[in-house]
Design a protein around this nucleic acid. Structure first.
Lengths: 332, 332
DNA sequence: CAGCTGGGCTAAACCGGTTTCGTAAACTAG
DNA sequence: CTAGTTTACGAAACCGGTTTAGCCCAGCTG
């Protein structure tokens, strides 16, 4: 490994000059520049990142914290963030919390440890306040897709309320009135907002909402299955269900099928997210699409603005759209 | 930020002693240990990683290079690698090549740049030799799931030939003889091996293989669709198709459905990988399961052995299994 | 009691860059 | 020709750890 001193010696200058030249912090006469360039080329010099990082104090890496990277929705989001980060010369350190709150806090600690300069967090479990205080102790965090209430960092979310409203109205327009809502963790922003949209659609169309029809749990396939069981113990069964996420919808559809029920003929299902392969399901899932790519890009941009101490918007909301496929049927 | 010198001063010892003690490189009398511990706690000392890295020359991070993290199979693999890495105190730097060979080589350069100590590569595009020579220049790379021919690094693969053999035999036992094979890039190890298994199953069961029935392309959904079109222009259409990967199978099934054909009644489909949600497809996909979790864990373990200069096996093969679902129907 | 051993600890070099401050030489203006 | 200003560059401090070589002294040995 050649060092900057070797390059300097080879070129006949000092390490300081070489460093400043290579980092464009100085204008040099053409002859000098040439000699340095030649020396760099001759020795195949590549600056030692570790040394540079120590001396500058910056790592040019960001952290990406998600609950599960194996969730296709997060995987896709991570992918777009990674692309955007690479574009700006940043590397991405990936970490999953697998539902453990303390791991989220551990990863925040990486900011202090200089592991990464900044963090993008996509959490999807409710917070009792500990996470919030931990995040607030840092100034270089961006929240994407899901809120952690009470923290003052840039946030990039989608129009949850409107998406849910739209989805529910779609079900109503197809003739459904007994519409269940199987969502996620009760105290999550997205869950509350989606429920709000669901309720508004019902009320605006004069169908009486019943809280016994809205089920909370976790954003997981298992909860979808469990919720389905619960729905069916209910007196008058729903003819349609609006799920808080596609993952939940897969659980619902799976259990429905196991129970011999046909989607959409016996019961209609709508999801939220439009995760990859939602169109391949049995049946293809009608769902509310989140603009994953834009979400990821905006999240990184917000972080980038933060890094460069530019003005950042406190919260951004991205539009969603209903994509109609085969999991909804008309009802007389 | 408190430094090790401040801790040393606070405790009344030298930085050297504190450093050695904190890294378990020295045995100290209990009284000394106590005073250092106390100083660390009092000042809330956290070692500066950047400094440590420069001085040790190690980053305690590994790189993960995949073509697409948004492919659920890779996402899942990445997730298990990340879990295993974290268990051993390593962070994971994620990078996707999006099919660009030069990006693969760029990421190899990160080894020299001390970005990461080691690299796990899951490539799935054929190599013209440039990647191979680049990999060979490094001693700390592990290949997982797919080979790059001619490089001498630890490799963790699955029993492709047997899996394909098994899948094809399953089709034959269901009465099929006109079985197509839509695979991936022709010169990929996995493609060749899976084709070998496919051909062996045919021959062992006295059905004459026809190379016009095996189609090569890319491991992508689009290729699955295109290949389906091509299959249908064929004189006597296949009654079943064995796909080289689930991603390809989704493309096949999608196009089949668009063409008004029913899976499995009109045509049976078998995939390879058992990617997440393969059981949710329409119909649920019969496929060859790769033990993703074991694959990821073994890959990291191989890398870890490399790091610690332990003996490593040159190549490991993991067993696969056929998981039967609804995409295959009997034929008289 | 001299010599040896080993425990406890540290000075100083080192990792390889970046950055600040400054100076000598060249150039410009008056 | 002198004073002031640029230009071109370098010495040295700094980032914050780790590690090597070795010092000092207590205790043991003969």
């Amino acid at each position: 490994m050649t060092t900057i001193s070797q390059v300097a010696r080879e070129a006949g200058y000092s390490p300081a000059t070489v460093s400043r030249y290579l980092n464009n912090r100085i204008e040099l006469p053409a002859s000098t520049a040439l000699r340095i360039d030649a020396a760099v080329a001759r020795l195949g010099y590549r600056p030692n990142l570790l040394a540079r990082r120590l001396s500058t104090g910056r790592t040019e890496a960001i952290g990406l914290v998600a609950t599960e990277i194996s969730n296709p929705f997060f995987a896709e989001l991570a992918a777009t963030i990674e692309v955007e980060a690479e574009l700006h010369g940043y590397s991405v350190l990936m970490s999953t919390t697998r539902g453990a709150r303390e791991r989220e806090i551990t990863y925040l600690g990486r900011l202090e440890d200089r592991h990464v300069d900044d963090l993008i967090m996509m959490t999807n479990e409710p917070d009792d306040g500990t996470l919030a205080t931990n995040i607030d102790a840092h100034s270089n965090v961006v929240l994407v897709d899901e809120d952690v209430p009470g923290v003052a960092v840039p946030k990039v979310f989608v129009e949850n309320e409107y998406g849910a409203y739209h989805a529910t109205r779609h079900l109503i327009e197809a003739g459904h009135t007994r519409i269940a809502h199987t969502s996620g963790p009760r105290f999550l922003m997205s869950v509350r907002e989606r429920m709000d949209g669901y309720l508004r659609a019902l009320r605006e169309n004069r169908v009486e909402p019943s809280m016994s029809r809205v089920l909370f749990g976790s954003y997981s396939r298992k909860f979808g299955a469990d919720a389905t069981d619960q729905m069916h113990s209910h007196a008058d069964r729903p003819t349609a269900v609006f799920c808080g996420s596609d993952i939940v919808a897969t659980g619902v559809m799976q259990r429905l099928r196991e129970g011999g029920l046909n989607v959409p003929d016996d019961i209609s299902v709508v999801g939220f997210d439009d995760m990859p392969f939602a169109d391949m399901f049995a049946p293809a899932l009608t769902t509310v699409r989140q603009p994953i790519e834009t979400l990821g890009r905006k999240a990184f941009r917000a972080l980038y603005a933060l890094i460069n101490k530019q003005e950042t918007v406190a919260e951004e909301r991205l539009p969603v759209s209903l994509v109609e496929r085969q999991s909804v049927a008309r009802r007389p």
